[in-house]
């Protein structure tokens, strides 16, 4: 917990302004995206500390950092790093380098949802990584009620590496929910929640279901602090893998 405080304080003190609490990107703090890119010419820096706990092994710490650039209207590209440290084997891992491309196809118009897709390419730079991993994600965002939104994310992930006992291609679906808190007098906080089902790479396991809850809090004119907690709740075959995952992060646009 002390480590979390140190990292969070350091980030708050060092970076200057941008981003919006209403716009949700995967990892900040949960795993779903909304269907909107960052603005044209915006640069965003998103970073966050994660802590994965396991029922039968020691926790793992991660520090995900992503830089994005809105290179065209409704389109951004990014590069991300996710080094981690496992207490069980006392070893750090540089992790894979992830390249991303996001394309917002359309905004919400009348009753039609906003649509987007993103592509992520994971380069095998991490310890023991093999092959290039590609994830394609289709994203749909739709307002429900007055201010709340649901975000449907459909994922297909594939790897160029053929590994024994691992699926080469897997799928996932996440339903995200965002609700601004405090309207109509406060405008700086959004509740985020998700339900997710993801097919495990491990052939001995099947679909893993998880839920998550978090907050995105605007802390500066263009900077957001986020906090989230996720937990696997069921698995169609085998046991849930991660007991609880905490994430705390900071995003800034400039």
């Amino acid at each position: 917990m002390r480590l979390i405080s140190v990292i969070a304080t350091g980030l708050l003190a060092s970076v200057v302004l941008a981003v919006d609490h209403n716009n949700v990107d995967s990892g900040r703090p949960l795993r779903f995206d909304d269907a909107y890119s960052i603005a044209y010419r915006e640069r965003a820096f998103e970073t966050g500390f994660t802590l994965d706990t396991f029922r039968r092994s020691s926790p793992k710490y991660g520090l995900k950092t992503e830089y994005k650039y809105g290179f065209a209207k409704n389109q951004d590209i990014g590069i991300g790093f996710e080094p981690s440290y496992s207490t069980s084997n006392r070893r750090g891992d540089f992790g894979n380098v992830e390249l991303s491309y996001f394309n917002g196809l359309r905004r919400e118009i009348d009753d039609q949802p906003a649509l987007a897709y993103r592509l992520d390419v994971g380069l095998p730079t991490g310890t023991g990584s093999k092959g290039v991993e590609v994830r394609a994600r289709g994203i749909l965002t739709k307002t429900v009620g007055q201010y709340d939104k649901i975000h449907l994310n459909l994922d297909v992930m594939t790897s160029t590496a053929r590994i024994m006992d691992e699926r080469q291609t897997t799928a996932g679906i996440t339903v995200g929910y965002t609700k601004p808190l405090g309207y109509p007098t406060q405008f700086d906080r959004t509740l985020v929640a998700q339900f997710s089902m993801e097919q495990s790479r491990d052939r001995s396991r099947d679909w893993v279901g998880s839920v998550g809850l978090g907050i995105r809090q605007q802390v500066g004119v263009r900077s957001v602090l986020d906090f989230g907690i996720e937990s696997d709740v069921f698995e169609t075959k085998g046991r849930a893998k991660s007991s609880v995952r905490f994430a705390i992060g900071y995003s800034v646009g400039f």
């Binding site: 919006d20 209403n22 905004r107 919400e108 118009i109 009348d110 009753d111 307002t143 007055q146 201010y147 601004p180 309207y183 109509p184 007098t185 406060q186 405008f187 700086d188 605007q218 500066g220 004119v221």
Partner: peptide, 28 residues
């Protein structure tokens, strides 16, 4: 409501589109 906000304004900029989602869907 508007008057209350103007008299006690937010400390950060407000995303106008988030406050008027129906309007923005019609007149984006």
């Amino acid at each position: 409501t508007i008057d209350r906000v103007l008299q006690k304004p937010p400390r950060i900029p407000v995303d106008e589109a988030a406050l008027s989602p129906t309007f923005v869907r019609k007149y984006g």
